[in-house]
Design a protein around this nucleic acid. Sequence first.
RNA 1: CCCCCAGUGCAU
Length: 421
Amino acid sequence: DVTYTSMIGVLCKANRLDEAIELFEQMELNKKVPCAYAYNTMIMGYGSAGRFDDAYKLLERQKEKGCIPSVIAYNSILTCLGKKGKVDEAYKMFDEMKKDAEPNPSTYNILIDMLCKAGMLEDAYQVRDAMEVAGLFPNVLTVNIMVDRLCKANKLDEACRIFEGMDKKGCTPNAVTFGSLIDGLGRRGRVDEAYRLFERMLDAGQVPNAVVYTSLIRNFFRCGRKDDGHKIYKEMVRRGGCPDLTLLNTYMDCIFKGGEVEKGRALFEEIKARGFVPDVRSYSILIHGLIKAGCARETYELFYAMKEQGCVLDTLAYNTVIDGFCKSGKVNKAYQLLEEMKGKGHPPTVVTYGSVIDGLAKIDRLDEAYMLFEEAKSKGIELNVVIYSSLIDGFGKVGRIDEAYLIMEEMMQKDLTPNVY
RNA sequence: CCCCCAGUGCAU
């Protein structure tokens, strides 16, 4: 039984759900009533595959067969409900489960998580209190969930309060706790506090991971403190920290945005030198950085390097490359890619159209720009000020004032305010 | 066998 069940678990994790189901059904045939462990595993398998209804049906079948579902089965179902945001049903299930099994700390965490995600912070606090009333202690995961959600809801001080109070409750912050809060503070520009937290992390004997360094670097750069950003990178290296690809991509983007083009290029080389294969984001960042530095001509070569490497472009990458082509006199190439992306299941966005329309407008190909403008409208894309500005600017520049005026009026009718005068 | 799975890229 146990062997079967672990096999089912392995199959589920390997995305071979069909085989898992087959095995499970065989168990049901042989044994009439599989053990609770088997049900747990199978319910979880359905859940992580997104087949929530099947998970629920299996729970019902388990009950019918007289096997009492364990808390773990219920937790899996609650997780499913959480992923669908069905808070009410989750509450109902929570009450219902008490007949069969005692909720454990995970049960409460799952509830708290979904309430936080639904923005129902007050309810989340209530559940946390109920947890204590039930004689269970919130653990580090409970805190992590709340800290993260509070930060994202811009309730930083409250997040800090919970963080500061956790030690008293006998739970120690871990890397995720620190990471969430350091990033939460940094994103809101409170980088010095974030850095102090980083120091506390060190004092507490924790080893900061790449997530923490990435967040610090990005946020210091974003508020214009380039030198501090660089220092943090060096500090990481000095401490023997190992950058991952996300960190290097982020750092490269920061460097480019700070105007250090050659350093940015060097970082791309370093990514390769460190044995990473640049991913679609690495290329997007590099190309974008070069475009902004006036080196849009290099898009062509990089685009082919990307393809050669087998890198699959996503919407943002297409947008970036298309912009690069537009800004290096290769508008036809941009058109071609516009078609390519449609064909590959990436519908052009308002940004895609924005790039091409602007590219065309800047070289006075206004009729084509206008055609794309109409095309975007016909596709139901919400046009924004950027698009209108490019067009108005273009028509105005060549003296087609009447048309510029009409477009301007259309923009006003949409309640968009011009930002270029 | 169940819960946080915290950090990167685009147009005027």
